[in-house]
Design a protein around this nucleic acid. Structure first.
Lengths: 243, 243
DNA sequence: ACCTGAACACCGTTCAAGT
DNA sequence: ACCTGAACACCGTTCAAGT
């Protein structure tokens, strides 16, 4: 709204000592990048400050504390996601929902530990306009498919929880295996913590799985199964009243 | 196997300075109790040592490090659960599965943060005989209901993930609300991070939910919905070939 | 054999002082 | 206005020494 006749307002300098001036947003984005590169365990106020080329104290000029820093990072993380389009037509909604879940999964995988960090710091998901629009669209999708609005809301929450839970509990182990697991475990039909000891254990189904399985389920296979269960579960609920 | 004629083997003293001698198990159980009482943020080697009445160094005589401590606690946690019986008959499997999930949920809620701690320390679930038996039984249940064995395994994993995810992402917020959320939020139809700002936001479904909902879903309602989706999803997969 | 006390390197956070 | 350097209270972990 400023007229050209006014003297330009004094502006915050954009640089200082060769690097861009810090902002709350730039710090949050740096934290998010850090997470993607080095993981949640290494993200400390001091290491982030080193990355940014400032003293640790400088960060506190823009965020309250570590909790606040992670909140900003979570906000940016959520606003960064652009979901694929959802077309709730009778012949396409299942396919579209599958693609939607796959895309959400990929987004979370890009920033490992974001969720477990937020969990640990008791951070409620950040309230960003983009995130609100995305949630609203997913609820609308389920409503159009045939769920009553309260159920559409519950289905939306369950969908997000399924994807986030899968990434945190399954993908994260696969993408960043802990150091104490030797790589040979990966070719086993069952994960190491489920392998039956021997024939004496009286674990008939695990034993049969261990013997009969040629190669272990890939994470993608497991994810496809879980999403199919979700889709069929939703499908059962709209059966009859669908459209 | 020792005969009565042999001199009794020298035994480890059971007490020292008035308190019971430490063992790997007693330390793990103390850590688990601590989690239930004071939560994961306060569980440190030093605070646990104070609780036990020893110096921090003493703990290191029984566990390798903090990671190992949490592993022992996780083992005990898993071995502590006695699941309800699963009877895979045509008329009862849905009811039994519902009860099974409810019981597993209750078990995890008793020790808040156990999962997120294990996640953070990259701990694969502990390999305890009791846990293996429980997993084997659940796979057997799904197999009897009508799933091929590989699908029964996938369904077992999905079931556990659903329950654990629900406890970590939903119940934990409800049972231990973060300090910055005022209690008034609890009576709102939507959680604070989903409330639309005003009429201008163009969030039609969230706005309608906010206006039409009398009282918010209880965690139990949300959980029942998620489990029903799971059951229907499994049901769709065994339809026709059921028993 | 099992423990204590002191110490080290690290962390989040704050204070007083610089420019 | 924005930053640095030093400091404080905490943490996991280790060392040397006690009983």
């Amino acid at each position: 709204m400023s007229m050209s006749s006014e003297p330009p307002a004094r502006r915050r300098p954009t640089h200082r000592k060769g690097r861009a001036t810090l902002t709350r947003e730039s710090i949050g984005r740096a934290a998010l990048d850090f997470l993607g590169r080095r993981g949640p365990a290494e993200l400390t106020m001091r290491s982030l400050a080193t990355d940014l080329g400032v003293s640790p104290r400088a960060i506190y000029n823009y965020v309250e504390d570590r909790r606040d820093l992670i909140t900003v990072a979570a906000e940016i993380f959520e606003a960064d996601w652009q979901p694929p389009q959802l077309v709730p037509t009778p012949d396409r909604w299942r396919t579209d929902l599958r693609a939607y879940c796959a895309d959400l999964r990929a987004h979370y995988r890009r920033h490992p530990g974001m969720t477990s960090l937020a969990l640990r710091e008791n951070i409620t998901l950040a309230r960003h306009p983009t995130m609100l629009r995305n949630v609203d669209a997913l609820i609308g999708f389920y409503a159009t498919v045939g769920l009553p609005l309260p159920d559409a809301y519950r289905a939306c929450m369950e969908t997000i929880r399924l994807v986030v839970g899968f990434v945190e509990f399954q993908d994260s182990l696969h993408d960043h295996p802990p150091a104490h697991l030797d790589p040979a475990e990966h070719s086993q039909p069952l994960p190491s913590w489920l392998q039956p000891d021997g024939p004496g254990g009286d674990l008939p189904h695990l034993t049969r799985l261990q013997e009969d399985t040629r190669q272990p389920d890939s994470p993608d296979t497991l994810f496809a199964f879980s999403v199919q269960i979700l889709i069929d579960g939703i499908g059962a609920r709209v059966a009859g009243g669908e459209f």
